[in-house]
């Protein structure tokens, strides 16, 4: 039997008291509305992706995936993620360290600036790099003279991806590290650890799940980004096409099976992300800052 001192309080929360529930009919109605809405707006699109991808059988699906340009797109997408995620990871940790562990003037402003890319249209995120490195920009002629190609090539795609995924790790870690305070670090320093040792042995273990969570979201966006990448990529098949861009090209060529085959790979990736994300939230909810919402 449970501890009689504690049990009634627990029981009280389990049993919604009479005053705080809807009538069964109202409950059923609300649940129906919610489920119907989610089914139509979330579930159906997801189902359609897989249904279309396999509409001509698994053979057609595999053929579409195995196509040369598709494989090139998958490789490019992975490459872009492999470069941009670590960059934003390092930035996220550094920014969170500076913001969460210290008090300085302009901190709130800096935090706002980090969130800036979230409020900018992806197309504009791409546009700013076109304006910066394009032929008509100040840098353009100089870049051309030195044979440096950024736009309509991999560097441009990476830059645009870094821009749109910029805040993910930082905004996950900042509230988490702020909540954890500086006590552990001060203790480690007082015991003779140097700065790096303190970070590796004390701070990093404390934030690892939050960090992983941020990386997961950052990676999902990096692999799926469309608008920003579309503007800077130049859409050269097999060269500067990421998977989402390849989906567009195939779709516009009326190659539905091909488009949805590639799309289903991305959707599978999204599902894996959701599962991992949910597992992290369930198991390490307390160690992940509660910043669901982006």
């Amino acid at each position: 039997m449970a501890d009689p001192e504690l049990y009634p309080a627990d029981a009280y929360h389990e049993h919604a008291s009479l005053a705080v529930t809807e009538r069964p009919l109202a409950r059923a109605g609300l649940m129906f509305v919610a489920f119907a809405f989610l089914a139509i707006f979330l579930l159906l699109p997801l189902v359609v992706v897989f249904e279309q991808a396999f509409s001509r059988g698994i053979g057609a699906f595999l053929e579409a995936i195995n196509e040369h340009d598709t494989i090139a797109a998958i490789k490019l997408t992975l490459l872009v993620a492999v470069i941009s995620v670590p960059l934003n990871l390092v930035f996220g940790v550094a920014a969170a360290w500076a913001i969460a562990k210290f008090e300085f003037k302009g901190k709130a402003f800096l935090t706002t600036l980090i969130d800036l890319p979230f409020s900018v249209s992806p197309v504009i995120s791409g546009l700013v790099y076109v304006l910066l490195f394009g032929a008509s920009s100040l840098l353009g002629p100089w870049l051309k003279m030195h044979g440096i190609v950024i736009l309509f090539a991999v560097p441009g795609i990476v830059l645009a991806t870094v821009f749109v995924t910029f805040p993910f790790v930082a905004r996950e870690l900042i509230p988490l590290m702020q909540e954890q305070g500086t006590g552990d670090e001060e203790a480690a320093l007082s015991l003779g650890a140097n700065g790096w040792q303190t970070f590796w042995h004390v701070t990093l273990p404390n934030i690892k799940w939050g960090l992983l969570y941020g990386v997961l979201l950052c990676n999902a966006r990096a692999m799926g980004e469309f608008g920003a990448v579309s503007v800077v990529s130049g859409h050269i098949r097999g060269m500067t096409n990421t998977m989402p861009l390849h989906v567009e090209i195939l779709y516009n060529e009326y190659n539905a099976v091909g488009a949805f085959a590639v799309a289903s790979v991305l959707a599978g990736l999204a599902l894996v992300t959701l599962v991992l994300k949910t597992l992290l939230e369930l198991r390490y909810g307390a160690e992940i800052a509660a910043t669901r919402g982006h």
Binding site: V48, Q52, G224, L245, A267
Partner: peptide, 26 residues
């Protein structure tokens, strides 16, 4: 409930282009 709760985040995780062609087909 947990599955449905997790599914709410699908639009965050699903690339927009995928959502776009799926919705168009639908």
């Amino acid at each position: 409930r947990r599955v449905i709760d997790a599914m709410v985040d699908l639009p965050f995780a699903l690339p927009t282009a995928v959502a776009g062609i799926a919705l168009t087909t639908l």
